[in-house]
Nucleic acid binder design. Structure first.
Lengths: 218, 218
DNA sequence: CGGAACATTGAGAGGGATCAATGGACGTGG
DNA sequence: CCACGTCCATTGATCCCTCTCAATGTTCCG
């Protein structure tokens, strides 16, 4: 990310602490005091917000290299839960140290701003998905997004193992688990994907893109 | 926001530029080069993202004192449109100057981080709304949020003038304009609000809260 | 091996979308 | 200042997508 050796050295001192989280355990919960950002080193997380009456909404899934915890800055307390979907390890980055180093290194400063901006842009695209897409489009967009992020990490472009349940997918996409399951089945019938439980093989990426973006021929 | 006179003075030099935007005009469009954040001084904005196939989604409404443009940081280009819903004026805050001053004043630095974090948290609550609420709940939550923000600016707790159309409300809330209209009518029939075009009088705030949060009696 | 958690599939109901027609408000220009 | 056109809002009728309720099947783990 464009840092020189000196900067890297300083940065290393910030991210010296590691933390392991077992599958199903929380990295933090709503209301916890905010102290640090976390960089996922391995494993897979979900973040979710909860209403007073018990409904909850998955707001994102985070994989290796992604940053969790920025929700806590504004009020000094976390406003969502971060749950490990498989055994995971994170780098703990105490936020006061991040801010301190950011004042010293403009590269790092700008990087922090970019990470937060990226999260905002990502959230906007989820709002678009939730606000204006139908079930098939949502699931297709979800699969394409997941596989694209995995591919960027050296995994296959066409095969993936889902780390979350149908219910969690549904919560993220604003649909019920049964609808998620049915939509998977529909894609299978159409020959677009193969599904065996958590394993998904995308046989026809273009078909998925077609579903997300009907006639972008214009 | 806890700045001393010296800091205020420096800050004034950053936000010296003003810009007027006529109703219906864009503060910026998707793809525009990112240079600055904008603080709304007067007027009312919407931000919206657009898909390749022409659908669009209102991602937020911004009023006096709120900050627009953070979507542009990550890629150096804006990823949404910002449109004035009435004649408006903004303070232009060149982002490189914001970053420069942030390195000097920790108070300002933290303030910038908070603003971005607040946007992330807000987006998450919209995702909750879009993902798990029904039409009535969405509109009730929307009205309560609007009136609360207006009240914080010295306006009435129970009366407001909507600056956006039913279609824009619908786009924000993930429903069609007809459904927005019908839901308004339903609230009127139930005696919860009065509506005359853009004018809304909330006669029973508790009833609205009840709709958003059914039996939080637990 | 047995139980719990997760997933699939079916049948039926309902909330919101869609299509369509009418009514009001606003602003522009005669 | 009024007339007209345009934009916006309301309301009705119908349809369909997704939810809900329910039963069954599968996988994983103690």
């Amino acid at each position: 990310m464009g840092l020189n050796p000196e900067e890297m050295g300083k940065l290393d001192t910030v991210i010296s602490t590691r933390r392991r989280i077992k599958r199903g355990a929380a990295l933090f919960n709503t209301g916890d005091k905010f102290t640090s950002l976390y960089a996922v080193r391995s494993g897979f997380f979900k973040t979710c917000v909860t209403t007073a009456d018990g409904r909850d909404q998955v707001t994102g899934f985070q994989m290796t290299g992604e940053i969790i915890g920025m929700d806590g800055i504004v009020s000094d307390r976390h406003s969502c839960d971060a749950i490990a979907l498989e055994d995971a390890e994170v780098c703990v980055m105490p936020f006061d140290q991040v801010e301190e180093l950011s004042r010293e290194f403009t590269t790092l400063q700008h990087h922090v701003h970019k990470i937060m901006s990226r999260e905002i842009v990502r959230d906007h695209s989820v709002m678009l998905l939730l606000g204006s897409m139908r079930a098939e489009e949502r699931l297709a967009a979800f699969l394409l997004n997941l596989v694209q992020r995995l591919h960027a990490r050296g995994f296959s472009q066409s095969e993936l193992i889902l780390r979350m349940t149908r219910e969690e997918i549904g919560s993220y996409l604003g649909m019920k688990l049964e609808t998620v399951s049915r939509t998977f089945s529909k894609f299978v019938e159409e020959g677009t994907i193969e599904v065996k439980q958590r394993y998904v093989h995308i046989k026809n990426t273009d078909a998925l893109k077609q579903i997300v973006n009907p006639q972008s021929c214009r």
